[in-house]
Structure formats: C-alpha cells, structure tokens
Write a protein that binds this DNA or RNA. Structure first.
Ligand SMILES: [Zn+2]
Ligand SMILES: [Zn+2]
Ligand SMILES: [Zn+2]
Ligand SMILES: [Zn+2]
Lengths: 127, 127
DNA sequence: GTATAATATGCAAAGATTTGCATTTACAAT
DNA sequence: ATTGTAAATGCAAATCTTTGCATATTATAC
C-alpha cells in the first residue's frame, strides 16, 4: 500500500480523529487531501478496512453508521436513545461477557465495538 | 390506527414471517396488499415502529439492515461473518449481561435484539 | 526486467433511502 | 356535527450508497 493510497489516507483521517465519523464525513475529509477521489472508492476502501478488522462500523443511533479505528483504543458504548448521551466502556469491562459467549458457542468473537442502547438517568426522570 | 393503515399492514407482514426482512423486502410485501403505497411511507413507518419498541432493526451482516417483530419472541444472535451461520440466544441467556450493564450505568437498557459477530467453528478450521 | 495475475481506482449509471412540502386522515374538544 | 390539532401519507426531488465495467496500479512469478 503506497503512502498516497486511499486506504492510507482514510487511515490517517481516522487516526487524527477523536469521535466516530460517517462514511460521508470521511469522504469529505479524504477529499481535502485527494481532491479527485471518487466516493465509491472511499466506500469500498472502508468496507475493506472493516472486513480486515482495522476499522469498526456501528450504528450509534445517528443518521448513518459510523466508522472508527479499532486498533487505537478498543472500547464499547452505551448510548441514550433519547438525548444521545454516550458512555464508553473499556474493552475489559465487556470482555468477560464476550469470552463467555465465545466459550459457549465455539465461535471466535470478532465484534470489536459493541453498541448498546438505553435511556440515561436524566432522560428517565424527564418522564 | 385503522386496520388498513400502513403500520398495521407492516405489522401483519412481520407477524407472518419467520426470518428477518430488509426494508426493501417489507416494502415489496406491503405493496402486494396496498399497491399504491409509497416507499417513503413504509420507511417512515418502520422507523416509527422501531422507535416505539415494537420492532427491532439490526445489521446482521447482510447488504442492508433487517427488521423483526420484537414482541413475538425476544432473542439475540451470533452470526458467522464468513459463512453467515446464525446462532440464536433466548433472551434469558443474555439478560444477565444486560442487567449488569443496566445496574452499573443507571441506564435503562432498550437494546432488544443484540447481534454479535464471530467466526464459527467450521470456518475456523477452513483456516 | 517482463509477463501475469490480483487488487485498487475512477467513472457513469442504477438503486436505495431520506427529506420537504402539500394533502389527507385520524383524534379530541367543543 | 363542527372545528381544530396532530399524525400519517403521497409525491417529487435530493442525497447517499452500491454496482458494473474499463483502466491503472501493485504484487508475484518467471
Ligand atoms: Zn467508539
Ligand atoms: Zn438521555
Ligand atoms: Zn432475530
Ligand atoms: Zn462460518
């Protein structure tokens, strides 16, 4: 993979990013560097990176699924479906559960960015 | 909601369905009964039903997210990302974990159809 | 290095989904 | 029943995403 490849540019974009990004947002950011890049190429690259396990793709309750680097800091989330408030769990806090499932099923778990939904304490009070 | 409403028709479609369906598939089935229905109406109705908790929406690894009645038989899945093989867990087998998260976070968990991914034993052998 | 095969990219078109707005329908209050 | 309000629907347009195919790039084998 040469350093100017799309995948590499995507990688850099995700690396310098705290939050999760939609495919569209990633495309926009890649276009800043590679102005002639085609959307389909970005979408296909993302798909590839997800399949290879470098990147996670998740529905976080927003208008579109979001992508994030997996390698950087493995974690999981609990999202309030009413106000969008987001808790982050370190991988270890969920690992027990996933290991249990792995042991009982024989499947090797690949889920690397679990997203649960709920209603946060504040929103529970609201009614 | 009158009995010929779109939401009601969608409900019937999902009720008489074993497997998960994509929005497109649901639209096609609704159209059989209500030939003049507009796609956007079906999409919006589904969104509503999901928001109200009657229907689950999940990425099961296929080309599009899939919908399913939640009320019928609450459950969760583990899907092989290589061959698509699908295990189904009764709600009880996952409930402990969700209850734990609920207790520790104060969030009231609403996730009603959890989908985990992994590699099944057969595909692990394939190398 | 040259040839061969596999992968990545761009482009155009198709397809799927969402959005804005006007209209209709359902519900509730009078 | 009449009126007023909120929700649901259809239609057209916009947007987002995927797909097929040709070209270019990269990797592998000789
Ligand atoms: Zn995350
Ligand atoms: Zn909240
Ligand atoms: Zn299911
Ligand atoms: Zn498998």
């Amino acid at each position: 993979m040469r350093s100017s490849s799309i995948a590499n540019t995507i990688f850099k974009v995700l690396e310098g990013q705290e939050d999760h990004l939609t495919a569209k947002e990633i495309y926009e950011k890649v276009k800043v560097t590679l102005s002639a890049v085609d959307p389909s190429t970005v979408y296909r690259s993302l798909e590839r990176m997800v399949h290879q396990g470098q990147v996670s793709v998740s529905d976080m309750g927003g208008p579109a699924v979001v992508y994030e680097l997996v390698t950087k800091n493995p974690h999981h989330h609990l999202v309030c479906e009413q106000c969008g408030k987001k808790l982050t769990f370190k991988n270890g806090e969920i690992a027990d559960f996933l290991n249990e499932v792995q042991k009982e099923s024989g499947f090797q778990i690949t889920t690397n960015h679990l997203v649960l939904f709920g209603i946060c304490p504040a929103c529970q009070k609201k009614k």
